[in-house]
Design a protein around this nucleic acid. Structure first.
Lengths: 238, 238
DNA sequence: GAGTGGTCTAGACCACGTA
DNA sequence: ACGTGGTCTAGACCACTCA
């Protein structure tokens, strides 16, 4: 509990997040206008505007002058790989994908801890490759709490043309809002080397990601192994 | 040239950046109050406030309620290593430093291109180790345009207790504002292995950083090799 | 042309830090 | 007690999008 109550724009921001989490508006939908929201929350337009600006800064919504304020979506619009920081040295864009597997399993202690589950709760494991110019550059393994992703199978993934996070939105109503990554340099295991067509022991960039949906609830643990010979992980520091 | 002129708050922001670059206020100094700046620029307090908020979001200034608006500094206050994303797995903080060398040299083509110099222009090269619990974890090499760092020697570095970027501010008036990093996994060379006390070929995280001062002028090229056994590079994605 | 977000203003009041 | 930034309001006008 804060000593002094949070400012009104912050309270409104939280109410809007709660409404987004409850699905009042889906990704891609347009929100009510500032004036309408001001009336709904009994605040001035300026205060609602501030709340919306904060949400836009967090990429929860997207503002378009003349059109309205829209719920952000991983589908279609901008980058289909908003959270993927791997870029080609020659700036070539895009990846091909190859699904390696999708199976149900029970959460290891580590996976359970990361996702806030009990050990041995059911999770779904997905493994795949990302390729650039026909060469594999990323080996991805990811784990999802099964209760939020009922019905996710290899067929569903293969049938979906867009990014995984777009599939999660449209099919399961799970929108990834932010993520934390831990990076390390590791030596390729025999299996990783085989899949990435590298010698065993080759240096790989290990990227462990925990992705969160509305309300900071962890919804995906992902471990990527990036081959960084002709690609690099780009990061901007402010 | 933009068709329509930039908004007033953006013009004011740019004027403030220019004043910061010209040294009208030094890192740590307090800026004039919002009201004073509003009079100076002939704008309303709200418009100046917006400009200052943008600068605060970019970490160019720091606002303290009741005290004033201050020019950001790498010296003392918050993190002495604002741009260093390497954290210990057990969250232990801080590093010891060991200077390996500081010498004048001529810019290679690559260094010149990164720093916007002509090939063979004079630069200063610094090499050092960062240690945690007595063990080396980072091997840093960095290159600086000599004309902006006249008088930088090993003795000057050794005599300075704080972070390098704090030294650059106080001694050379160069404040690093933002940076771009490119990360790769590489195999330790013989020399890197020796300095980091690792077997040759061990996987290392290579971090190539280009740091910019006011006005997006590149002022430092740095290449770090991070040993990521008990530490990891942390990144937050929004 | 109607409706949306974007800019700019003026003013009131509050919260905080310092002397 | 004073000066600072932080919040909130009300209203005017502009710029853009789309039917």
């Amino acid at each position: 509990m804060p000593k002094s109550p949070a400012p009104l724009y912050e309270q409104i921001r939280q109410l809007l997040v709660a409404a987004l989490a409850a699905g009042e508006w889906r990704p891609g939908d347009v929100l009510p206008s500032e004036a309408a929201l001001a009336e709904r929350f009994g605040a001035s337009a300026g205060t609602v505007r501030r709340a919306l600006d904060e949400l836009a800064a967090q990429h929860l919504v997207e503002r378009r002058q003349g059109s309205g304020t829209f719920v952000s979506t991983h589908a279609a619009p901008r980058q289909p790989f908003r959270f993927l920081r791997l870029v080609a040295d020659d700036e070539v864009q895009g990846f091909a994908r190859e699904l390696l597997g999708c199976r149900r399993m029970r959460a290891s202690a580590e996976i359970a801890r990361a996702l806030g589950l009990r050990t041995a709760e059911p999770v779904i494991e997905v493994r795949r490759l990302l390729l650039r110019r026909g060469r594999p550059v990323v080996l991805d393994e990811l784990w999802l709490p099964q209760r939020h992703f009922q019905g996710l199978t290899a067929e569903v993934i293969e049938a979906h043309p867009g990014a995984l996070y777009a599939l999660f939105e449209t099919r399961f109503g799970v929108h990834m809002v932010r993520a934390q990554e831990k990076l390390r340099a590791v030596a390729a295991t025999a299996e990783a080397a085989r899949l990435l067509q590298l010698p065993e022991g080759a240096p790989l960039l290990s990227v462990e990601r925990l992705a969160f949906t509305y309300g900071d609830r962890p919804m995906e643990l992902r471990r990527g192994l990036y081959h960084t010979a002709a690609d690099h992980y780009r990061n901007d520091l402010n």
